[in-house]
């Protein structure tokens, strides 16, 4: 069933004319929404050059939606930034372009040109090098070039152990590094936004949301997301236990590998060679939430880059990864 999927163009109209919501949002989502909006307004008021990271994923899309609501009827007073790793699913770029056009927001797309020139390829160079050059380094380049003093990200505390202890306003030194032992105490809803030139703050308005909250909010708010989240027949091969989708001809098949059409969907989106699909019949947001309520694996299980070793996310974050 796909009838309940919101289309991007209908969604864009919602912020142009006076919209009236039909059904009340669930009470706990209203509280989470208000907290996130408060955080965004605080950043807009206190920083000179904020930017919102947009990864095209579901959390990012909720973040963008909240930004549209926080400053409505004005547009969000900051640009959006997408770090294009050159290896994302094709459908993601298409969705990003349609969405920014429909909403009339400024979307900056950044590519690490060094990585492009060196032809960094996750199949050949491995996920660690690929992620460092085309994601972490690329992000730091874009932040330096834009001289951004605050960057919003869609991180949630329920995602991973080291995130559970991160502040909503998370300080970064001039090298963009995070020091978990030296975090500023964060009391009430009073956020310390003071920094020296060259330093910055990463801001996580979805800190207190869980994965289920995000899905439920997408459902209740009728927010469009990339169709890859919904089950469909897609060509996949099984590698190291994960179902990898053959998204373009850059994927060299190994001996004996034959892409199979399977009904799959993705719980997180990123670089297609590093993102495992799950077999699923869930073709609508209702289906997904229902599946969520009965599912037994966490979403990061689909991200190959987290498997290196325990504490790997904490290490990446110290280096500047979001």
């Amino acid at each position: 069933m796909t009838s309940n999927r919101a289309t991007v163009s209908e969604y864009g109209k919602r912020f142009k004319s006076q919209y009236r919501r039909q059904r009340e949002l669930s009470p706990h989502l209203r509280q989470l929404e208000a907290e996130s909006i408060h955080i965004m307004r605080e950043v807009a008021a206190e920083f000179d050059r904020p930017v919102m990271l947009y990864s095209i994923g579901k959390d990012s899309t909720v973040l963008l939606h909240l930004a549209m609501k926080a400053f409505w009827p004005s547009k969000p007073p900051f640009p959006f930034l997408h770090i294009d790793s050159l290896w994302e699913f094709k459908e993601m770029g298409k969705f990003r372009n349609e969405l920014s056009a429909a909403l009339g927001i400024e979307m900056i797309v950044h590519v690490n040109e060094d990585g492009r020139t060196q032809n960094i390829n996750p199949f050949i160079h491995g996920s660690a090098l690929h992620t460092r050059i085309l994601r972490t380094d690329s992000l730091l380049q874009a932040l330096d070039e834009g001289r951004y003093d605050a960057a919003f990200g869609g991180g949630r505390r329920d995602e991973e152990k080291s995130r559970a202890k991160e502040r909503i306003f998370s300080f970064r030194n001039t090298k963009h590094a995070w020091d978990p032992r030296n975090q500023r105490p964060e009391l009430w809803h009073t956020y310390n936004t003071r920094i020296q030139p060259g330093e910055s703050i990463r801001v996580f308005p979805l800190s207190n949301w869980t994965e289920l909250d995000v899905w439920q909010y997408l459902l209740e708010e009728e927010i469009p997301i990339v169709p890859l989240y919904f089950a469909d027949e897609r060509p996949v091969v099984k590698r190291e236990g994960a179902l990898i989708m053959v998204d373009d001809d850059r994927m060299a098949l190994e001996d004996g590998e034959i892409p199979e059409m399977k009904r799959v969907r993705f719980r997180t989106l990123g670089c297609y060679p590093l993102t495992g699909a799950i077999e699923s019949e869930a073709a609508s947001l209702e289906d997904i939430v229902l599946e969520m309520l009965t599912t037994r694996t966490s979403e990061r299980a689909g991200r190959l880059i987290d498997f290196d070793e325990a504490g790997s996310m904490e290490k990446k974050k110290r280096e500047g990864y979001f």
């Binding site: 669930s26 009470p27 706990h28 509280q31 989470l32 439920q216 209702e286 939430v289 229902l290 309520l293």
Partner: peptide, 17 residues
């Protein structure tokens, strides 16, 4: 199924946070 789901979701978090 959708109605049942909606009802179930409404129950989660009825009293807020």
């Amino acid at each position: 199924g959708a109605d049942e789901l909606r009802e179930r979701l409404q129950r989660v978090g009825d009293c807020g946070v």
